[in-house]
Write a protein that binds this DNA or RNA. Structure first.
Length: 584
RNA sequence: GCCCUAGUAGCUCAGUUGGCUAGAGCAGCCGAUUUGUAAUCGGCAGGUCGCGGGUUCGAAUCCCCCCUAGGGCUCCA
């Protein structure tokens, strides 16, 4: 290449990497077809940070196979042969892919008279139906690594045959590859499943698959999260309700869940009647609303419900805390008049922004999902409501994209996404309009003129599932919770046991302010006590020795290694306390 | 649900082609030590080798079933 990679613009880099990764997929396909002549090639696109290629083979690939394939790929790359494209007619193309039903299917989906391109390298030893997007020659694939194998359905549809996929990554230099591997390792260190274990936050037991048990430490964090949300609810005028766990199936028929959500629900039988365990709170919220007659003066009515939900997720899709079968949400339903929608959603987004800031999540991005093909409600209502949502996003200068057709059947929605500390993006909050629920449950309010009107329902969650949010937060913070969330906020480390009495004194003082504090009374040396506290990621360590005892002070070490010797007890108490109260 | 991989002490892991009472470190308990910013020393105790079945003189190890967990299952020539 004439221009050096490092001089490329971000966009050029991306395109170059994509081409290189796609080229690597071709090289992978050549290696596989040479080692396994019966293998049928299918698709091999570049993906974020790498590429994959799906093959139809008799037996799944083994790690040994990957080694052989890697070797052969390196040989092909070393030969540095050119990628060459050619155009053929569709008829000729069918001749070329004969016997490969996957490629035939791809050809069939293409326009009638279009010309089809084939790309080859290794001087024609391998050729593949491909729209293009390669580097000039195989030698430009500087550094690659095959990562894993996996079963994958043709076109992602489980009714199709299962293919064998090989994932790989490729980079413009050895250093870039290494950096990428480091990034993966860093992510693994932050894995909430690992940290959850080492910090004693939660565990799983096969006796209740995909349902977390929260230990005292994890429970403290969840309670603090809930307390925080409740404080915001107080500020933003929400009312909290508590609703039942299981409902007669009649309810789920009425709400539509029996029709649309059946396979994700758990059912129990009581007195020969069928009951469903709630997977969502909305029908219960509707019942609460309907339990009284409402005047327009009551609206908007914001009903929060932390009720525990159960969803029967398919066995292969559950994952740590981020996809579980039993969880609670900071869920609420707002019942309002149509002309209150805008204010309500703006209000909610304000609260959402405020809360994300508290958790040090920046760069919120929104997605506005518009009407899907299958939907309820008249066109006018959709037009109006989509316009309202778009207005809100525009007016407040929120960063967002539009997803046409992705809305729920009952209304358009806005989802909030945030990147975490190492750049991975998570979907957290959501706000959805619902025109269906008021209909199904015949919800009404009495208008100023005495007429009966239908309210609009807004579903909204800020943090989403609290379990999932905790998982995300653990990875975002790498387990270093801010003081207000830390299960143990400070630990006193007496150097010898003659410092114990003074330590108790400090302990009582902090305890009386409701600070979660411990004394390390173990028969260990100070160094070991510090190490233990560090490993537990306790934000404050108070070292107590002769100096502190005689001057009635404490020496403070924070978990990031900052040391301050002999500061006044009142000062440090104030500091810790204000961090907690301000949720800093 | 489907494909692959894995499951040994509370945790992290050894356990070579089937072969002695299944090992280690950490954690735990007991004892000694009383120590200034990331591991003091010694001892003790701890295991249905995920569950069930089979092969074998003999199974953590080989085979089958089940359970659970992990990596995946259109970022579309």
């Amino acid at each position: 290449m004439s221009k050096k990679f490092k001089d490329f613009s971000e966009e050029e880099k991306n395109i170059y990497r994509q081409n290189m990764r796609h080229s690597a997929a071709h090289v992978l396909a050549e290696a596989v077809t040479k080692i396994f002549p019966k293998a049928k090639v299918t698709l091999g696109p570049p993906i974020k940070d790498g590429f994959y290629y799906d093959f139809e083979v008799e037996k799944p690939f083994t790690p040994e196979n990957l080694k052989d394939i890697t070797k052969l790929m390196q040989k092909i790359i070393n030969k540095n042969s050119l990628f060459v494209g050619r155009e053929v007619s569709k008829a000729d193309a069918f001749e070329l892919v004969k016997g490969n039903q996957y490629k035939e299917e791809i050809l069939e989906s293409m326009e009638e008279d279009s010309l089809v391109t084939f790309w080859s390298h290794s001087n024609g030893e391998f050729e593949d139906l491909c729209r293009g997007g390669h580097v000039n020659s195989t030698g430009e694939i500087k550094s690659f690594k095959l990562l894993s194998t996996a079963g994958a359905y043709w076109r992602g549809d489980e009714n199709n045959t299962m293919l064998q996929r090989i994932y790989g990554t490729a980079w413009e230099s050895k250093e870039a590859l290494k950096e990428y591997i480091n990034r993966i390792e860093e992510a693994e260190k932050r894995d909430h499943r690992k940290l959850g274990k080492s910090l004693n936050l939660f565990f799983f037991d096969p006796i209740a698959p995909a349902s977390p048990f929260f230990l005292p430490n994890g429970t403290i964090i969840l309670s603090e999260l809930e307390k925080y949300v409740k404080d915001l609810y107080n500020l933003y005028d929400y009312k909290e309700v508590i609703t039942p766990q299981i409902f007669n199936t009649e309810l789920w028929k009425r709400s539509g869940h029996y029709e649309n959500y059946l396979e994700n629900m758990f059912f129990v039988s009581i007195d020969k009647k069928e009951f469903g365990v709630k997977p969502m709170n909305c029908p219960a919220a509707a019942l609460v609303y309907a339990s009284e007659i409402h005047s327009y003066r009551d609206l908007p009515l914001r009903l929060a419900d932390f009720g525990r939900l159960h969803r029967n997720e398919r066995s292969g899709v559950t994952h740590g805390l981020t996809r579980v079968r039993s969880f609670s949400q900071d869920d609420a339903h707002i019942f309002c008049k149509f002309d209150q929608i805008q204010a309500e959603i703006e209000n909610f987004l304000d609260m959402l922004n405020e809360s994300y800031k508290t958790f040090k999540f920046d760069n919120i991005r929104f997605e506005l999902s518009l009407r899907p093909e299958k939907r309820v409600g008249d066109e006018n209502t959709w037009n109006e409501s989509e316009k309202i949502l778009k207005n809100i996003l525009d007016k407040n200068n929120y960063k967002y994209s539009m997803q046409s057709g992705e809305g729920a059947f009952y209304g358009p929605k806005i989802d909030a996404f945030v990147p975490d500390a190492i750049g991975r993006e998570w979907q957290l909050g959501t706000v959805q309009l619902d025109f269906s629920l008021p209909e199904r449950f015949s919800l009404e309010y009495i208008e100023e003129d005495g007429s009966r009107q239908k309210p609009v329902v807004i579903h909204r969650a800020m943090l989403g599932s609290l379990e999932r949010f905790l998982g995300v937060l653990i990875e975002h913070l790498s387990g270093n919770f801010p003081t207000w969330l830390s299960p143990v906020q400070a630990i006193i480390i007496p150097i010898t046991d003659k410092h114990l009495d003074y330590s108790y004194d400090i302990y009582k003082q902090f305890k009386s302010k409701n600070i979660r504090i411990e004394i390390d009374e173990s028969n260990e040396r100070m160094n070991a006590k510090i190490r233990n506290a560090q490993l537990r990621k306790i934000p404050y360590m108070f070292i107590i020795g002769d100096n502190e005892m005689s001057s009635k002070t404490v020496s403070v070490r924070t978990r990031n290694g900052k040391e301050t010797s002999s500061i006044s007890r009142v000062d440090i108490l104030e500091q810790v306390n204000s961090e907690i109260l301000n949720r800093f």
